[in-house]
Write a protein that binds this DNA or RNA. Structure first.
Lengths: 196, 196, 196, 196
DNA sequence: TATGAATGAGTGTTCATTCAT
DNA sequence: TATGAATGAACACTCATTCAT
């Protein structure tokens, strides 16, 4: 049916329905019938577009990783040129409102847990981890020796993820201001005074 | 031959097998056949002793919560009488080696994610949260006004859980010394100088 | 349910139901629900006993191969000691009434066609082919040089299978007497006069 | 642009793709997507031209029956006028190279098996059987009394099909010369000496 | 004429649960 | 007390078919 250009629309619908379903009923109850139903489509179409449920979950996880990446990239692009500005932009991107709302965090934690026993999801997770760290290390290297920069990047990455997860555990609203403040302090502790 | 006293032994076997299974293959693949197999028992017995899979998972979660509780209680009992000693004992108990090894943390995170969409597990989770907080508040109240004590307890509880989860994310060994140090600092920040 | 000794009975029931189903509705419509229904059992039990549909079909094909083997072995054991007697017994076994009734032949032809595109079934088919031929060659070698024996065995095997299939195509009753007569003539043509 | 004359071309493409698919992957895996893909067309078109998959399979079987019919008719037309020449021509047509190559035989056997449980295909099969036999009987009647002619036709038809199937079972090259020789002998056995 | 998006019935399989022993 | 045979609902997936364009 020459309703051309449907594929990207359908994929989008299905990925959104997947994230919504995981948020609301959890991964264990996220059957393809449930997901397709929320998307207003039939179950069969999931295999048609994503090759199967695994493909859809994979695409859904990629989606939230990409949203995070985009949120960070935007802020970094808009930031000033100093390493400190760039690093603060990375922090801000990670605490973007698209990332720290309750629904997103529930989905994140779900994928996190799932990735512990699913090779494909773990790969995505690790790629994301590495990207955050190398991104941080890139800017630290401008003002710190290589080994110091690595250490600082590792520490800040852990702090960001830690604050992040601490937020998802709290259940209530994520206190962005406070998380940002904590991360900023951590950052300044590693930056040479001259770079402040 | 009735084999008196079998029930507690069987329950123990099955709960251990459940935790081991969740650690190794994940909750999604933790079928009762798999669990019973690891326990060296038949699948049917799970319904016999726990009323069903849900009952077993519930019991397994209670088990790890109780282990945490015991680890804390022991330390508190052995600690000095000052609020600071007691509060440090609570922190130490939470970072006990039975709690921060990779397997235990994997299971914890799994239950954490599951409790987001399972009413029974959520209840256990919340009860545990409240217990930690009221425990902390109890000792804070000895040296702080009620409202201050509440706030301090809430903050320290979040810090403990946060450090804890940050550790499970890191994947490697949990740095107990550092986590304890961070929590101690947080604690001293809230305690009046006179209580140090 | 300690109704001990059920497995072999169930397997038997299911294999019989499979052959009956293939005979009556064909392989394409031989769903596990249909088969299990004819056996008076639930569909799930097939995976339980045979690991899946493939396993059951495999077992069913093995069954008819084994029945053929047994029919031949019995006749050979009861036959006189001369190569001619043994070879005639092999022929007779292949045209045993358990093998040449319409239902059996329909199932045979079905498996034959299926084995053209199914690796597992083809393996069974070939193993059976080789067994028939080596069985024939064994007796031919007593009165013929090796290479001659091979050729004779190859020829007689083809003749047996050919008559057999010709029968299944005819649709009506298999004319055992005529098939046997034809095969005997073929046999005598290869045997040295002294061996008649 | 209506592209006049497309229908017959499309039908041809699809029938060929069907036979090719059945040869290579078997009837069970001959999905319409697979067939349409081999034809370089979309899946929907099959229902358009053949009303559905059944219609296509029907047409494909008709095709191979017609190819056989044509091969026979050609030879009969070119043959001498004696019954013996005509009958030999019918035999030759059945062992035409278009009929006895491995691919054609695999498809034949597949349809054969399928026709055992599919009313439509069985009808085609029987019509073909009857045509062969009445064709043979027609020429036998010139030199034999009616009842004798029927019997001879039935025998020769069975022999032809039998040799044919025996060939498809052998797996290797079909020995046309030998099959023809066997059928000729059978034929001469029934023909009155004067008709040789 | 031909497409390809979409459906939904049907399939094999898994698995928690039941129950006779 | 404990088994393991058996069930049946739920699942992901396949595929012939339909239909708007």
């Amino acid at each position: 049916m020459p309703k051309l250009g449907m594929p990207p629309i359908r994929r989008e619908q299905l990925i959104r329905a997947t994230l919504e379903t995981i948020d609301q009923v959890g991964l264990a109850d996220a059957t393809i019938a449930e997901i397709a139903g929320r998307a207003g489509l039939s179950a069969g179409i999931i295999s048609h577009y994503f090759g199967g449920k695994d493909g859809l979950l994979n695409a859904a996880m990629r989606r939230i990783l990409r949203q995070l990446h985009d949120a960070v990239a935007e802020r970094v692009a808009a930031a000033g040129e100093s390493p400190r500005d760039k690093l603060r932009a990375i922090i801000d991107g990670n605490f973007d409102s698209t990332q720290v709302n309750p629904a997103a965090m529930r989905v994140w934690l779900t994928f996190w847990a799932a990735s512990m026993h699913d090779a494909q999801l773990r790969r995505l997770q690790h790629a994301n981890d590495r990207r955050l760290q190398s991104n941080l290390a890139h800017y630290f290297r401008r003002v710190l020796p290589a080994s110091e920069a690595q250490k600082a990047a590792r520490g800040l990455a852990a702090m960001i993820d830690g604050l992040w997860l601490r937020g998802s555990l709290a259940g209530g609203e994520f206190d962005v201001a406070r998380a940002r403040h904590t991360a900023y302090e951590y950052l300044d502790h590693y930056l040479p005074k001259s770079a402040h």
